[in-house]
Amino acid sequence: MKRLAVYCGSATPADARFIDAARAVGRHLAERGIGVVYGGGRLGLMGAVADAALEAGGEVIGVIPDALVSAEVAHRGCTQLHVVQTMHQRKQLFTDLSDGFVTLPGGVGTMDELWEAIGWSQLGYHGKPVGLLNVGGFYDQLIGFHGQMIEAGFIRPQHAGILIHADSIEALLAKMADYVPHQPIFAMKADRL
């Protein structure tokens, strides 16, 4: 994996462990020679990931819609900063520029990015690993809900392993490196759907 899209919040939560985790991820990726592709902001977890990766000598590519350049206060220190017109273009560029996805804690936008990466994988738009870093149990309920969707039959057995999760970035990257793409919906026959 040469580059990973990192999805995370642009907010700065009161609990410092989330910012600390974001910094650790940025630093760890840079130290492993893995470039960061992210939302292009300089605030919150976004800024923490970018700053730590840059401080460690890593490549940081920001992708931000024009309408959010002011609202998210675009990070002008990125290795590259792509300003796009729409959120759809932003997510497509995340996918095009990365070899996988790592999701840190965040809000609605982060969830949108995560579920779209999973949905695109199921369909066959990409075969890249989709990782979820469960910082301090933040995603325990989401992981449980994902399991409930599998158990209820809304996620096919062959797609159950798309969402990869771990409590540390080291463990998550190891699992992502072992990821074997599944059979996408586009390649399935009607009787298997």
Results as ranks from 00 to 15, higher is better:
135 V>M: 05
134 N>A: 05
173 L>P: 10
118 I>V: 15
108 V>N: 12
44 G>C: 03
18 F>P: 06
48 A>M: 02
171 A>M: 09
179 Y>C: 03
74 A>Y: 04
97 L>I: 08
63 V>K: 00
36 V>W: 07
37 V>F: 11
185 I>C: 01
17 R>H: 15
172 L>C: 05
53 A>G: 03
29 L>M: 10
163 L>H: 03
174 A>C: 00
94 F>S: 11
106 G>M: 04
167 D>A: 14
58 G>E: 01
155 I>R: 08
138 F>T: 10
114 L>D: 09
1 M>D: 08
153 G>D: 02
17 R>N: 09
116 E>L: 06
185 I>L: 14
168 S>W: 09
146 H>Y: 15
178 D>Q: 14
16 A>M: 11
113 E>R: 09
190 A>K: 12
23 R>H: 08
184 P>D: 02
21 A>R: 02
94 F>N: 08
61 I>W: 08
74 A>F: 07
165 H>I: 10
131 G>L: 07
164 I>G: 11
122 Q>A: 06
53 A>W: 05
31 E>R: 10
105 P>V: 02
92 Q>S: 15
97 L>N: 11
152 A>I: 12
35 G>K: 04
139 Y>A: 02
152 A>N: 11
182 H>P: 09
164 I>V: 06
152 A>M: 12
186 F>G: 07
40 G>C: 05
91 K>C: 13
101 F>C: 05
54 L>D: 00
131 G>K: 13
94 F>R: 04
109 G>N: 00
